[in-house]
Amino acid sequence: MTQLLELLAKNSRLSNAELAILLGKSEQEVADEIEQLEKSGVIKGYTTLIDRAVENPNLVTAYIELKVTPMAESGFDDIAKFIAQYDAVKSVTLMSGAYDLGITIIGENLRVISDFVARHLSTIDGVISTATHFELKNYKENGILLCDEENDERGFVSP
């Protein structure tokens, strides 16, 4: 990843002027580079990293493994896109190995999630089986530690 992308991945609120200073480039160069990255689809958007457990301790996150029969022509694409339409679904990924689609869902409580799996996911044509795992604690997301406070253990040491 370029340094520009690394900086934005950590803090997408940095302005072009700030990025220019940090990278030793002109503001125009930064603006051009970002525009190019947006156009080519490398940058899909600018989001906020939220620790949902702090924002609402009752929220439940589940990771669901889905076994699916691929369809003629479209393979897994149509089912994946169908599932991705639900607002509650935060991510959909095609996986190699023991199952096909990995899905992350966030719900108000356990009941909401199990209802969603029973009523919406299991019933989709082509879905063979589901296995739901509930998240207990999130330690790191997008490369950022969620659980540790910044703690400087260096003392006032000098000769």
Binding site: D152, R154, F156, V157, S158, P159
Partner: peptide, 26 residues
């Protein structure tokens, strides 16, 4: 005593100091 040391002794006695004096990597 070194000038850094003397100054650290002052800073060390205070709480909540944002310390940009240390010469070791974070």
């Amino acid at each position: 005593p070194s000038g850094i040391r003397k100054f650290f002794d002052i800073a060390q006695q205070m709480d909540g100091v944002l310390n940009l004096g240390v010469g070791e990597p974070d």
